[in-house]
Amino acid sequence: MNLVVLMRMVPDVVEELEIAPDGKSLDRDLLRMIPSESDDHALEEALLLKERYGGRVTVLALSAPEVADLLYTAAAKGADRLIELRGVQTGLGVRAAALACADAMTSLAGVLPADLILTGAQAIEDLDGLAAPLLADRLGWPYLGVVTKVNELADRTVTVVKEFPGGFRGEFQMTLPAVLGIQAAERPPRYVPVAKVRAAMKAAKIEVGQAPEPIAAPLAGIDLVELCKPEAAGRAEMLEGAPEEVAGKLCELLAAHGLL
């Protein structure tokens, strides 16, 4: 089994997000990048599939600050091949990047043919589309998103579970090769001891791949008028005081609403 995981780094929302003076981007000084959460899940799902079916996991990560950490951690978790992809513009919007990634996967030696490409179902800065269906469309492969489980990976098909509203799930069968947008892995991404990551830093090798010429510009066809913090249209009335005081106020409130 040949599994490819596409991972991206996105701004870490634990840090304060401030808008740059131009009003059209985030202030990069304050930014710290973190692997996109659902990409971490995509990696975990790939590793679980490798444990179940054997094969190789290739992690392709878009170049970003601290991306080496992401890749070495992936190696420590069990990824076999690490590729840092340069020359793909990241940031707001993913369409240009996803299409460039698809082309890079085709041109980089040995990435394809693959059975599955897994990536996160969506990321927090995907203003102009979703990575998984774009990859699929460019490669001409079938796609399904919001996947939370792979039930079976056979020679020519894969059976996956997708989440629907109200706690319902749907089991789909797809022909291989396919692209999966992973919402959550079957179990939370594993912890890897730092000692293993440090060992990976010495033993594992990160290949650097250069993306071919982009076929689209970032946010092509879209004018970004401005970025801003959302107006609290109808912000909550805030209650202050020590817990006991606030509890008392809330009780009054609930009683007034006939809830007590």
């Binding site: 001891p193 730092v194 000692a195 293993k196 990551v197 440090r198």
Partner: peptide, 8 residues
């Protein structure tokens, strides 16, 4: 037992 983290 997370000596790697400690060392870092």
């Amino acid at each position: 037992g997370e000596t790697g983290l400690f060392d870092t």
